[in-house]
């Protein structure tokens, strides 16, 4: 479903601030694979997701989504294939617009926007049902401005918007990092539920090793702009945090400092 081949990206090339963010990162995801992405700060996890989303063009390599080469497509054209949830709960929704309007915007992703109503009555009924499933009490606040919602509610809504029409790939960029632990686990549950329900192909960046192990059926670890560890199938199911730390040392050749700041258990 997703083929990211040998992606390279350097920021501020030729200046004192030069930073090689992606140095030949490769990842192939089959349909229905839910891949968690871990790695230290600056390893290139978010950069990798942004490369797939087309926030900027890559310096090298190619990206194919469901057989379509999207390497040359700008962000808004690539959006038709992608669902995205961001780290900052403010990023994924339009605060000044109503809940139903936000969902309607997402429902028309990749479609031609004409002079039909922005939200129809039948859509509102559908959204009511969808929000009810989240069990956050949002179904009775369809016409409330999204800016009034809490961070967790906004992330849950963004998730719903990202999956309102089935995306080829769902990109989750540390989408629970800004939430309190209880809300974070609720949002993760919703994430897992939606991915399973729609059999989505997904990438989820996380700083939490336990979440990376517990969720999904694939796990990659990134370091210095490369994918250094790739675990799937049975191996993923029986993975422990100790295994992961051990593997990291093996692959990277450096001792894992077990820095809880970088990778919390």
């Amino acid at each position: 479903m997703l083929n990211a081949n040998n992606l390279r990206k350097t920021f501020n090339a030729g200046t004192i601030n030069e930073k090689v963010a992606l140095a030949g990162a490769t990842l192939n995801l089959e349909e229905g694979e839910f891949c968690t992405v871990i790695g230290g700060n600056g390893a290139g996890k978010s950069t990798f997701l942004n490369a797939v989303a087309g926030v900027w063009p890559v310096d090298g390599g190619s990206i194919t989504i469901d057989g379509v080469d999207v390497t040359g497509l700008p962000e808004h054209k690539r959006a038709q294939y992608l669902g995205r949830v961001f780290q900052d709960p403010m990023t994924g929704t339009a605060a000044n617009m109503q809940i139903d309007e936000n969902m309607a915007l997402a429902a028309r992703r990749g479609k031609l926007r004409g002079l039909r109503w922005g939200v129809t009555k039948s859509e509102r009924e559908k959204y009511h049902e969808m929000l009810k499933e989240l069990d956050l009490g949002l179904e009775d606040r369809l016409t409330a401005k999204v800016g009034l919602l809490s961070g967790g509610q906004r992330q849950a809504l963004t998730l719903l918007m990202a999956t309102i029409q089935k995306p080829k790939v769902l990109l989750l960029d540390e989408h629970t990092a800004a939430l309190d632990p209880k809300t974070a686990s609720k949002v993760l549950e919703i994430t897992d539920m939606l991915i399973k329900e729609h059999n989505l192909t997904a990438m989820m960046v996380t700083h939490n090793m336990r979440d990376a192990i517990n969720y999904g059926n694939r796990l990659i670890m990134m370091n210095e702009g490369r994918v250094i560890l790739n675990i799937s199938g049975e191996e993923k199911k029986h993975l422990t945090i100790e295994d992961l730390l051990h593997k990291f040392e093996e692959v990277s050749g450096t001792e894992f400092t077990n820095d809880t700041e970088i990778l919390s258990k």
Binding site: G92, E101, R109
Partner: peptide, 22 residues
């Protein structure tokens, strides 16, 4: 309308608007 909503979304959150394919 759909177009008008897209303009309003652009005004409140350009990053989100791009992610919705606008």
């Amino acid at each position: 309308t759909e177009m008008g909503s897209a303009i309003r979304a652009t005004g409140t959150n350009p990053a989100m608007t791009k992610a919705q394919g606008i």
